[in-house]
Write a protein that binds this DNA or RNA. Structure first.
Length: 677
DNA sequence: ACGAAGACTTGTTCGGAACCTA
DNA sequence: TAGGTTCCGAACAAGTCTTCGT
């Protein structure tokens, strides 16, 4: 096995960002082989250079603001330590003295994890303690429902509703112009819930005869009214809100002041599932203190709540977890809603770093990993062969693991749950994937695979391990599931799981593309910062495509494109006019109007540049209309790659990371410019 | 061994603020 | 200065993966 040709990395699917779940038989031009993809080298065995920088990259005295987000307004409780916060935790580094060669690398890694040690979720399986002291104010409840008294119509006539009934009717009414209104499942689920709230003998017997427009109109009017508020009013309201919320925004962990992520209890509403979710339209009922479990340090004040007579469901003092509160989801009894600390918190930063370090560890093993699964393609054991092929997809295409799902969830798949019908074979070892993945986002891709994989797939699609014939809806890989696969991965590397491959592939791709870009621009004319940013974005885009991060086409897209075209048209005619004018002046060799010629020329030049710019804008807008760059930036691309690149290329990091990203990635800011993933 | 519980990450969308531009 | 974009953060749904209980 292991023909060299298949450590060719990840296909780049430059072409073809597909539409969302709209099934459509696009005969997309297959993968665009494009220039890029050769060099399978820099990525693999990075054994060469790499980290000597780990040294400081890790002793980040990170931490961030949070101070100001802390309610400066209120002295949140005497808390003496409110001023202790931010500052170095994590004592100094271990003494340098790295040994030599491979050994040294090892050592560095260990040092890292040692430093991270406690309070790092991912390296802290099971009973690890995450905190010593924990203090916070609990959660903020949404306001109680205030009846508006607007009557909906039934059979053309106004009906009286109790506040509870009206509340639910209003939830529905305000969704008037969403697509949910066209979905039978949504309507059915809503009606069932509504019916129940109405009670047996209610005049309303049938959703079809309901007319919610009066409520809808009222709602829209409210919205308008809000818009026309004066500045002062708005400011006042905002101030009041901030005051009320201030104390919930921070928590104190081991004395440190840390931001809380989502301290608000979710308000009641209609469940908006993605894709064809069987539960869409169900009523998500109001959550009360009696539903909520609080996790807080022993001896700390128990958070208050505005419901006299009620108590929290439970008060816990669990030091092994990072959540502050949770409640059971009312839509799906097996789901939980948690209140966690924010993205800039120590908990999150630590685990973020750990995530990327794990992916880098995989990088050092990837050659062997590939050899292994390639070998498995020819294993006599059917299961081994299937696993080998699955691993190939996960590695090459960055697919998600794909766990089993219940019938009461949207029918989506990942690698391990692919069905026969999701994978079509085409000539020349081409495989066409077409399935709905997470969030029911469609994954559509045609990839050339290794011939052995192709052969295996032919069989996996036809018959199962026992030789029984398969149907289109059957599992492609019937011999194992995501858990089995992860178990296998544990044998290769501690903590390795399927998702690490996605992180690894995204990061290594960014790293490689940026390096290639830099190389290709060597000696070329200096680029402006904007041009460099465009380069970065193009690399970002490839990663996003690899991970299939899509977004729906903005509603105004077509409109805007038209506008741009118009603009372009105008610019072009203006250019033409200028050129004609120039020609005329030149021909008429008019009265020594030299100056005029010159100024015309410069005008023409300017016009051309303007046109170029608009064209570029148009192209990139069209290009990115279905690609979401943000997700990979936030979750997959090691920020140290970006920071180092910025340093090397004199691009201010603020050009690439917005404020919240800067906060989130504070831990990566002082990486060496030479950092490579 | 296996399914359910539990906890944490990843993902898209939405609404408001900031920013442009005519 | 209104009106439209773009940018961002909040919201919350939907994944992943480990642990727990039987």
């Amino acid at each position: 096995m292991s023909d060299s040709d298949d450590d060719i990395p990840l296909v780049k699917r430059l072409a073809a960002p597909p539409a969302k779940s709209t099934p459509k038989p696009t005969p997309k031009p297959a993968a665009k082989p494009a220039a890029v993809q050769l060099q399978s080298k820099p990525r693999d065995n990075g054994a060469s250079k790499k980290k000597q920088e780990t040294e400081d990259e890790d002793d980040d005295e990170d931490n961030e603001e949070s101070e100001e987000s802390a309610s400066s307004s209120e002295s949140d409780d005497e808390g003496s330590e409110s001023d202790v916060p931010l500052s170095k935790r994590r004592k100094s580094k271990s003494p340098g003295a790295a040994s030599t060669g491979a050994k040294r690398k090892r050592a560095t890694q260990q040092k890292e994890s040692a430093k991270r040690s406690r309070r790092d979720p991912s390296s802290s399986k099971s009973g690890q303690l995450m905190w010593k002291t924990l203090r916070h104010s609990g959660v903020l409840f949404p306001p109680e429902y205030e009846p508006h008294g607007v009557k909906m119509l039934y059979d053309g006539k106004p009906v009286n509703l109790t506040p509870e009934q009206e509340e639910v009717a209003t939830m529905f009414a305000v969704m008037k112009d969403t697509d949910y209104m066209k979905k039978p499942v949504f309507l059915k689920n809503f009606w069932e819930g509504f019916k129940e709230i109405l009670g047996k003998n209610h005049a309303i017997k049938n959703l079809d005869k309901c007319d919610f427009t009066p409520i809808y109109d009222w709602h829209m009017a409210q919205r308008e009214a809000k818009k026309t508020m004066t500045k002062e009013e708005k400011d006042r309201i905002k101030k009041e809100k901030d005051e009320k919320e201030g104390k919930y925004k921070v928590a104190y962990v081991d004395g440190r002041c840390e931001p809380v992520g989502n301290f608000r209890v979710e308000p009641p509403g209609l469940f908006r599932g993605r894709g064809e979710h069987p539960k869409m339209g169900k009523i998500k009922r109001r959550i009360y203190p009696r539903d909520i479990t609080i996790n807080i340090g022993e001896g700390e004040a128990i958070p208050e709540h505005p419901y006299p007579g009620q108590t929290w469901k439970e008060i816990k003092h669990d030091h092994t977890v990072t959540w502050l509160a949770y409640w059971k989801d009312t839509i799906s009894s097996k789901d939980y809603k948690y209140v966690f600390l924010g993205a800039t918190s120590t908990f999150k930063a630590d685990s973020d770093l750990a995530k990327y370090e794990k992916a880098r560890k995989l990088k050092d093993l990837i050659v062997d990993v590939r050899k292994n699964y390639e070998r498995d393609w020819e294993n006599s054991d059917h299961k081994k062969r299937q696993m080998g092929v699955a691993m190939y997809f996960i590695d090459k295409l960055a697919l998600r693991a794909g766990h089993e799902k219940d019938d009461d969830e949207a029918d989506t798949v990942g690698c391990c749950t692919l069905k026969v019908e999701n994978v079509d074979l085409e000539p020349n070892n081409k495989v066409k994937f077409d399935f709905l993945g997470k969030d029911s986002i469609r994954y559509e891709n045609v990839v050339e695979v290794h011939p052995t994989v192709y052969k295996n797939l032919e069989r996996f699609r036809k018959i199962d391990a026992t030789g029984k014939k398969k149907k289109p809806g059957d599992q492609l890989f019937e011999t194992f599931d995501a858990q089995d696969l992860n178990k296998e991965l544990k044998n290769i590397m501690d903590g390795l799981s399927v998702k690490v491959f996605r992180t690894y592939n995204a990061s290594i791709t960014l790293d490689r593309l940026l390096a290639e870009l830099e190389e290709s621009k060597m000696g070329a004319a200096a680029q402006s910062v904007d041009e460099k940013k465009a380069d970065y974005d193009s690399a970002n885009k490839e990663v996003a495509i690899l991970c299939n991060h899509q977004r729906s086409v903005p509603k105004t897209h077509t409109n805007q494109m038209e506008k741009i075209q118009e603009k372009l048209q105008i610019l072009n005619t203006e250019l033409k006019e200028l050129e004609e004018e120039l020609a005329a002046v030149q021909k008429g060799k008019s009265d020594g109007k030299k100056a005029s010629v010159e100024s015309l020329l410069s005008k023409i030049e300017k016009k051309k540049q303007a046109i170029f710019k608009v064209e570029l804008q148009a192209r990139s807008k069209e290009d990115l209309k279905t690609v979401a760059l943000g997700t990979s930036k936030i979750n997959y691309m090691d920020p140290r790659i970006t920071v180092a690149w910025c340093k090397r290329n004199d691009v201010p990091i603020e050009k690439i990371f917005n404020k919240s990203l800067l906060g989130k990635f504070n831990w990566a800011m002082d990486v060496e410019p030479s950092f490579r993933f």
